[in-house]
Amino acid sequence: MLTLLPPVAAALQEPFYLDLVRKVMIFAIAAASLNLILGYGGMVSFGHAAYLGIGGYAVGVLAFYGTTSGWVQWGVAIGASALVALAIGAVSIRTSGIYFIMITLAFTQMLYYLGISIEEYGGDDGMRIKARSDFSGLIDLGDPVAFYYLALVLMLACLFLVHRIANSRFGMVLRAAKSNEPRSRGIGFSPYAYRLVAFVIAGAMCGLAGAMFANHTSFITPEFMHWTRSGEIMFMVILGGIATTAGPLLGALVLLVVETLLAGWTEHWQAILGPLLVLSVLFFRRGLAGLMPGGKDG
């Protein structure tokens, strides 16, 4: 269905839809990465937007210094996100429950204020990115349709990757530690290293989403890392259905479309979205994926 959108949108002369769905797919990648640690790993990270920001700033800052190669920009985005996730994870994963939520939030707030404080890159005004990432002429991100298909392919790859990881031996250990940690220790697993590796994979994947998002908006701002953004990604995961393969896509789709519809209707859209979110959590406990036939996969 998603593959057919570009020709349809072109026929209807509504490029806006292309833009919206591209954003949905980018956020589906971010949500899929969070789903790995939150849904399967039970790690309620309330700072996942940090990697969106790091990925975005990697593209923006490199472009600022004249490096427009997408290979370098996106590579740095992924690598830097993985490194930061390693550092944050190494500290946070020693805690659990509310402390884990708070410490991941705190780290992300640090990065947010770091973004605000660096005037060179626009401070809290953000910074325009003059040119999109350049993939040696292979894909032209300036072409909305090409960028759309790239986002589609990468999103499907990420959803599939998370699905494979979640069902691998590694994934089973991760899920077991969420289900019953003392039991895991009892049969000989120490969850720490497995959780940390999952945390790093999730950070790297969300860094990719950040690099894409910066190209999507052609703009970077500390708002990428704002805690409400972390909450938004988390909500996509929960709305779509935690620990499901398609949940992150469904959650991102519904949240962003509803957001856009309400925003077009009234400027007080957040006052309507909030209660809607509460109701959906109350009534779709297993998320949107739970409503679909075969959507309740492991």
Binding site: N167, R169, G171, V173
Partner: peptide
């Protein structure tokens, strides 16, 4: 799945990310 996990605990490290464990 419960018991397979206990078998897995004995089967060396579990940093295997691709093949479905089930």
């Amino acid at each position: 799945d419960n018991v397979a996990l206990a078998v897995q605990a004995r089967a060396g490290h579990s940093f295997r990310f691709w093949r479905p464990a089930r």
